[in-house]
Design a protein around this nucleic acid. Structure first.
Lengths: 192, 192
DNA sequence: AGTAAAAGAATGAACGTTCATTCCGTTTGA
DNA sequence: TCAAACGGAATGAACGTTCATTCTTTTACT
């Protein structure tokens, strides 16, 4: 017998592909099952229902981001350098894992994402503590513009996500220098 | 007899509300009909099918934007002033017409929007000629960073849309000075 | 003007399809 | 041999669309 073909993993991965490529609409459970090489009923042994599958997939993806962007990160580096590091890493993550990026996008622009966002806001401490910490510190040191945190976030991440989307959809092609220049431009937007 | 209650208009407006508030998912034709005060079959006298309704609604909304942001616009003003004018007007449009904004968002983040975008790209001249012209000119005069047009667009509009979304979803509250500061920050991102 | 006929608009019940979920017979592994 | 895991047909709910029928407006005729 070959290595156990972990069914849960197969399902997650099939769901990621299909949701990312076709949207939530274009990915009925039967198709996910087929792509995962699994009976339709089997999915329900691992996920209570469709919604749970969608949300658990989101959780798993979100958790892969932080370790990725933190690679090579130094708390000791100057503020600007840290900003640029996290920004470029994040953009590279999106580009390197286009399916995950597309999925995260789908999720965020859906009732799931909005509910999720609202919950996160209420539980005052947002996730992505890395960014949160960085921005808090930047505000304290007055290296960032005097704007609400939420707006600073959007100034930094809005373009980043937009650019990643255009790249992933093949509307533009980002190379390494362009990534850096883009993040530097984001820095110009937030720096005082 | 009261004024004729133009059915097409009723349908368009009910569809806008429902799609904006509930997403494409949460707005079955029967509900749109009910909200419009119209029989289910009547919708099909005005729109060939659901897809056509969704696309025609988009067209109508898109066409209301340009006149709005052009109000008070002077071709003669300095470049930076023109950028700030268009940016703040656009952000104000989103805030003033939250349903339209939500709908446009839904549309863009759906297969409709992506197809639409691709078409626009192929027909090389993008819409929003106002912005296109401005940015072309800015690139020529070297007041903008040396980056592809598409990236400059995203640097300017990415945060704008993100901030509008957060406002419309009540995650933040934008007042007039904050709008201006936000657009000025976008300017810092694109200016050379 | 008044009325009958024709045209056009509107309706909503019914249809066919799609899809998430369930159910039950079969397989697998201990 | 038994229980857990699995598969996929069956089920029922939801939905877009159709169409026979009803209601409203316009036209034609005396």
């Amino acid at each position: 017998m070959t290595v156990k073909p972990d069914k849960r993993e197969e399902i997650i991965s099939a769901a990621l592909e299909l949701f990312a490529e076709q949207g939530f609409h274009g990915a009925p459970m039967a198709l996910i099952a087929e792509r995962a090489g699994v009976g339709a009923g089997t999915i329900y042994r691992y996920f209570e229902n469709r919604d749970v599958l969608i949300r658990e997939l989101y959780q798993e993806l979100e958790e892969t981001i932080t370790p990725f962007i933190l690679e090579g990160y130094s708390e000791a580096a100057p503020f600007r350098a840290r900003f640029l590091h996290l920004g470029t890493r994040l953009l590279r993550f999106f580009i390197e894992y286009p399916l995950r990026f597309r999925y995260l996008e789908q999720f965020h622009n859906s009732p799931y994402g909005i509910a999720h966002r609202r919950d996160k806001m209420l539980g005052d401490e947002g996730r992505c503590n890395v960014f949160r910490e960085l921005f808090d510190q930047g505000a304290a040191q007055q290296v960032l513009k005097d704007l609400p945190l939420a707006i600073l976030f959007n100034l930094a991440f809005g373009p980043l996500v937009a650019v990643a989307r255009d790249h992933v959809l093949n509307f533009i092609t980002l190379d390494e220098p362009m990534i850096v220049k883009t993040i530097e431009a984001c820095w110009d937007a937030v720096k005082r």
